[in-house]
């Protein structure tokens, strides 16, 4: 009787120690669900969701403070992925937060730019280069197309240009072929 109690106590203590050590050693930094949500978000940092960036929005989703359908750049696909991850029902994009647009980059009209640095301060990813009273320019590769630089510009010299399809970014299309035989006759 006593030995069995002792064995149980010993086992409990041993497991307790192992659990204790592993909880220190394998401690997970940060909240993994926030990171998972954040990795689905498109990282445009545009704030259309009503939060100041993708990470805050991810945090809000994780805390239940925001819905999954507030990110226009992520589009339908993003909402589906979030719904899958969180195990909730899919919802169509909330139109209050804007419509999905084709991927664009900002372009500064360098003749008009007065060098006020306001856009530089607004850019969430430091993709604008320039200094006071000198022309600014956008590092195209780093621009996420968030449009946050548009409102602060006092001379309205920034335009959003959609990224055009070219031989480099071209993709194979989904196969489309005729099923109706009669329509094929007309080809020749």
């Amino acid at each position: 009787m006593l030995t069995s109690i002792l064995i149980v106590i010993f086992l409990a203590a041993l497991i307790g120690i192992i659990l204790g050590i592993s909880s220190i050693k394998f401690k997970v930094e940060g909240d993994p669900i926030i990171d998972k949500i954040d990795s689905i978000l498109p990282q445009t940092q545009c704030g259309q969701c009503g939060f100041p960036g993708c990470k805050p929005y991810a945090t809000a989703i994780a805390n239940g403070a925001a819905d999954i359908n507030q990110c226009p750049p992520g589009g339908d696909e993003g909402i589906h992925k979030l719904a899958d991850l969180l195990g909730v029902e899919y919802k169509p994009l909330n139109a209050e937060h804007g419509e999905p647009k084709p991927k664009s980059v900002a372009v500064i009209d360098e003749k008009t730019c007065i060098g006020c640095t306001l856009c530089i301060q607004a850019c969430p990813v430091d993709a604008i280069l320039g200094s006071a009273k000198h022309m600014h320019t956008i590092i195209e590769k780093e621009c996420t197309g968030c449009e946050l630089c548009l409102p602060p510009c006092p001379v309205d010299c920034i335009d959003m240009t959609p990224i055009e399809e070219n031989a480099e970014n071209w993709k194979w299309k989904y196969p489309v072929y005729k099923i109706d035989k009669s329509s094929e006759r007309r080809v020749s």
């Binding site: 954040d38 990282q43 940092q45 990813v125 430091d126 993709a127 780093e142 993709k171």
Partner: peptide, 22 residues
């Protein structure tokens, strides 16, 4: 499609890094 998705993910990672650094 998969290649494009990967590229987008890569770009998003860079944007995240730059945003966090900012």
């Amino acid at each position: 499609e998969i290649i494009e998705e990967r590229q987008e993910q890569e770009q998003a990672n860079i944007a995240r890094e730059r945003n966090e650094f900012r």
